[in-house]
Design a binder for these strands. Structure first.
Lengths: 329, 329
DNA sequence: TTGAAAGCGCTACCAA
DNA sequence: TTGGTAGCGCTTTCAA
């Protein structure tokens, strides 16, 4: 690996001049600049980012912390972050907290020790003290905090929307799956749904689901039909849970959507591939990722940020687990 | 952030001594060690990894390069890598190449520039010249190369297995989906299947699918049934494609598994949630990740590695898209 | 417009 | 057993 010294020697100038040319800081004569440029080409030189960040105490690295890389919603989020970041010539470093606070804290440490210039955190941990004493900006993604910059989807509206669509299509006894209590986004959806249910004055019941993960989804589904066999409309806490419920419903011979309508949340890629394909409240994951990255980069660049809490709209994606509008059962 | 100087001052020793204590190298008196330890505690000191790696030219970071973070198979792989790596006190940095050689090369660069101590690459790019001039070890994952250390699942056997299971359960006209030609793993499965089909002398036809991605899967499924409406056994190139085919089959009213059997490849979490749930050839993704990480760490530690190309077995997971054994149609 | 030199935080050599 | 110090590759004063 060539160093800045090699370039300087080859170009017949000092390292200081090369550095200035490299960073477009201070004066460099046009001819000198050309000399340096050629030397860089010949040696295929790339500055050592570690040395750079030792001095600058920051790099062009951005850290992204995901709560669970196995939930398809998050890779989608990551793709958005990645594209926006790359467009601004930053680099991404992804960490997977695996829903464990220790891992989260470890990653934040790794990020810090590698002098990342900012962090985007999509974890679901309530305790955000990890982030408080950091010397660089942090954006929270898929999460609502008033104290910190954040990007999230309108869960409350999503919950309401799900209820409205279900009721409009004829469901009379709705079952609400309440996602993890510690998860604010899940609770927003839940609250929105409850709210709308009260407004519309529909019969309903609630079931608690412990997590969003695949393993737990099956269990919840089974339990649901035991407890509420006569429900005719289910709002799942996310698409994975919805898929499990759909599976269980079909297994026990229910007609979907004639006997039972199901609405998920997220619109992960698999939802379309289910049969019948899953109607769901779509979160614009990719866009959320891009927004978060855009916000962070603005903060890094010291630009004034007008809107620090960005709420993105959700949309109802009509597929086959809900009936046609007007066809009220 | 406290530095090693602060610790030295507080402990009343030199930075050299602190460094020695920190790294357990050279002599440090037990009492001194204690003094230093206390100072570290009080200052909440953590060594600056950037400075460390500037000198050492390596860090405790390992880079993992994924071809497509949105394909659920890869997050699973990543989890295995992560667990093994963390057990050895290394840190993980994930990159998503998004099936693009430029991105792959960029990530390798970022890894290199951040002085990672090794790379695990699961990308599907044939051109591995990126990795050739690296000064640290590289392990290829989910990919077969003779020249480089690698960990992969036995695709050839998987292909054969799929054919055997289908034929044993009564399929007479098998359709083989051939995954991306440039993907060696996909071709291994394909070759294995062809091989077994010839041995068993069954009627068959082949369809090319362009990619493993969600978007393309639907298209392939539709085309398949147009071209080969009377096929009674399909071996998909992976579970995503299988899910799309299952969807299309159900949509067009085929009886699964009575009229048509389907076998996927991978066993991603969603396969179990499909209805009917998907029979598939399971790749032990998590274990593959662990093996790859284990191999890399051994190489990093300079230990002798007996087996540089680790092939893991695949297994047939019997679910509901195949008939019961002996029930031959 | 350029270069010498200090220093970012750490490790390792050598001398004490 | 300990400490002084050079140096990893870079950036940034400050003087020329």
């Amino acid at each position: 690996m060539a160093t800045i010294r090699d370039v300087a020697k080859r170009a017949g100038v000092s390292v200081a001049t090369v550095s200035r040319a490299l960073n477009d800081k201070g004066y460099v004569h046009e001819d000198t600049r050309k000399l340096i440029h050629d030397a860089i080409q010949q040696l295929n030189y790339r500055p050592n980012e570690v040395a750079r960040s030792l001095y600058n105490k920051k790099s062009r690295l951005i850290g992204l912390l995901l709560p669970d890389i196995r939930n398809p919603f998050f890779p989608e989020l990551a793709r958005g972050v990645e594209d926006e970041i790359q467009a601004h010539d930053f680099r991404l470093m992804i960490g997977n907290a695996d829903e464990k606070p220790e891992k989260e804290s470890e990653y934040v440490h790794t990020f810090k020790q590698n002098h990342v210039t900012g962090i985007i955190s999509a974890t679901s941990n309530k305790d955000i003290s990890f982030y408080d004493e950091l010397s660089f900006p942090v954006v929270f993604l898929d999460r609502t905090t008033d104290q910190h910059p954040s990007v999230y989807a309108d869960g409350v509206d999503g919950g309401k929307m799900a209820v409205r669509e279900l009721v409009r299509r004829g469901s009379k006894r709705i079952t609400l799956l309440r996602g993890p209590v510690e998860l604010k986004t899940a609770q927003d959806r839940f609250k929105g749904a409850i709210d709308e249910i009260c407004t519309l004055n529909v019969e309903f019941n609630v079931m608690n689901t412990s997590s969003f993960a695949f393993e737990d989804a099956e269990e919840s589904a089974r339990e649901l039909f035991e407890r509420y066999p006569d429900t005719d409309g289910i709002i799942a806490s996310n698409d994975i849970v919805a898929a499990a419920i759909l599976h269980e419903a079909l297994r026990t011979g229910k007609g979907i959507p004639e006997d039972l309508q199901i609405i998920g949340f997220d619109d992960i890629p698999l939802s379309k591939l289910l049969y019948p394909s899953l109607s769901t409240i779509r979160q614009p994951a990719y866009e959320m990722g891009r927004e978060a990255a855009g916000l962070l980069i603005k903060m890094i660049q010291g630009k004034a940020v007008e809107q620090k809490n960005i709420k993105l709209p959700v949309t109802f994606i009509e597929r086959q687990t809900t009936r046609k509008d007007g066809n009220n059962g």
